[in-house]
């Protein structure tokens, strides 16, 4: 019981963080067809910017400034990099972001060093909120929860209730038509790319001190974000949300299941001493998202909620 409660609680928070990362990527991916390999690098940049800004002022300032900075960098990348590569096709675009991820990693190492930095939770949030089954529950996690939910509401409002949101939604499904209607589609692209990066940056600001801020954080986060986007379905924020929650909970709760394959398939004669029988569900947890990805793409290539094929 305790394990389930903890897994759910942490799974939801992790899922929200994943959604924060993947919402930007979904917007970019569905609108421009670009799978931005460097998306997790912007997440990392957010964490490092926040660390530096926190050093000279406060965490609260960093919470606002760092995502904006990351967004501006994202816009620059779109304007001077991606747009130029666009003519060479999707593969070239994808490879461009692939190389960009490399580059950002290296530059981060030059500026902030090659090991982890001491980016800590601010003192004002560093206390125990409540005790659950004998374990302290840090307030910062609840704070993360609220930031993520606030962002979610803001994003929903933006997309569904404002004019900009309407244009973006239209451009998601019919980019050419939007262009024909006289909207500046390149500007919309640039804005969406920047906003997507800023969301990733925000995830970095609140995720960096929850996890560890080091140059490897982008590589560790990267593939899983793709999985969320593809599983969720193209052009569907709702799908991305469901997929993020699913994978967040799947990853945090499957690790606490100790049953091995022999326990489950023992009736088929699988011996617990054999190499296959030994495998536990918890050790398979990190592979589940990828298994899900492969299965979903084979069975339903539009993803959970999408209406277009990837």
């Amino acid at each position: 019981m305790e394990t389930i409660v903890f897994s759910l609680l942490n799974g939801v928070i992790y899922g929200l963080l994943l959604f924060m990362l993947s919402s930007g990527l979904t917007l970019i991916f569905s609108m421009m067809g670009v799978l931005n390999f460097a998306h997790a690098s912007f997440y990392m940049l957010g964490a490092y910017f926040a660390y530096t800004i926190m050093g000279v002022s406060s965490f609260w300032l960093a919470l606002f400034i760092a995502p904006v900075l990351v967004g501006v960098i994202g816009m620059g990348v779109e304007k001077w990099g991606l747009r130029r590569v666009h003519a060479n096709g999707h593969v070239a675009e994808l490879l461009f972001t692939f190389g960009l991820a490399y580059l950002i990693d290296e530059i981060v190492k030059i500026i902030w060093g090659r090991t982890s930095v001491n980016y800590q939770v601010p003192d004002s949030l560093n206390f125990t909120l409540f005790t659950l089954y004998g374990a302290d529950y840090p307030a910062y996690r609840i704070f993360m929860f609220f930031v993520a939910v606030a962002m979610l509401i803001f994003l929903w409002y933006m997309l569904k209730k404002t004019r900009i949101g309407l244009i973006i939604q239209a451009a998601l499904t019919h980019p050419h038509m939007v262009g024909h209607l006289g909207h500046n589609v390149p500007l919309v692209f640039m804005g969406v790319f920047g906003a997507g990066c800023a969301l990733a940056g925000l995830a970095g600001v609140i995720g960096g001190n929850y996890f560890i801020t080091d140059p490897a954080m982008a590589v560790q986060m990267g593939p899983i974000v793709f999985v969320v986007v593809v599983v969720g379905g193209l052009g569907s924020l709702e799908g991305a949300f469901i997929a993020a929650m699913l994978i967040g909970i799947l990853q945090t709760s499957a690790v606490s299941i100790n049953a091995s394959l022999a326990d489950i398939f023992g009736f088929l004669g699988l011996s617990p001493a054999s190499e296959v029988g030994e495998i536990t569900i918890s050790s398979m947890a990190p592979m589940l998202p990828f298994l899900l990805l492969v299965l979903i793409l084979i069975v339903k290539p539009t993803g959970l909620m999408g209406d277009r094929e990837v």
């Binding site: 592979m287 492969v294 793409l297």
Partner: peptide, 24 residues
Amino acid sequence: WPSCRRAGTAFAMISLGVAELMAA
């Protein structure tokens, strides 16, 4: 057999998933 039923990005993503699974 399963992955070649798709082309384009879906194929690329399946290959990514398969690579992660095989390494694990």
